[in-house]
Amino acid sequence: MSNPFTLNGGACLAMAGKDCVAIACDLRLGQQALTLSNNFPKVFNYGDVFLGLTGLATDVQTMHSLFRYKVNLYRLREEREIEPETMANLVSSTLYERRFGPYFVSPVVAGINQRTGKPFICGFDSIGCIDFAKDFIVSGTASDQLFGVAEGLWEPDLEPEDLFETVSQTLLNSLDRDALAGWGAHVYIITKDKVTKRLLKSRQD
């Protein structure tokens, strides 16, 4: 009834491929079973790095503006864009600052290290414990479904177009089995020098 992680609903997924990464989210904002908006994206970008946030919607918004602020300051101070690994540590320490009164979010970081060209994805719990993964990261109310489908569909070294198909199929089929997530999706395919954003149509129920 009053679990903050499932109050508003939502799902997010990141996958690594060959010299590319993908991150995707659904668009639903709800209050329990009632859908309020079908245009509530949960993936944001700060320079070259992408951050997906699921959980309590207010904290999703608060974290988004907090990280926009922090990454802007980082850019001014360092005179360069933040790398995904650095972002991961920034997210982790920011969340752990609130160890005993956490933000109710499950973040996902995805990006390509601009110096080394290596794909990077990772996930977190709500107090900042980092989960480094070689394959994929899931979060949100559809995480069980996402785990099952991603584990079945993902394979190593996918090219960008194949990664897009894998991410999209994983997300859409998982969303269709979760009443709290869905209503459209955003998918980002990130390579070293190009980002493609696609809007997916999905079931509107």
Partner: peptide, 19 residues
């Protein structure tokens, strides 16, 4: 126990949902 993991996979691979 793992029905929530397997069900969407079967939707996709057996019933060809979203394809």
């Amino acid at each position: 126990a793992a029905a929530s993991l397997i069900t969407p996979f079967l939707d996709n691979q057996i019933n060809l949902k979203n394809q």
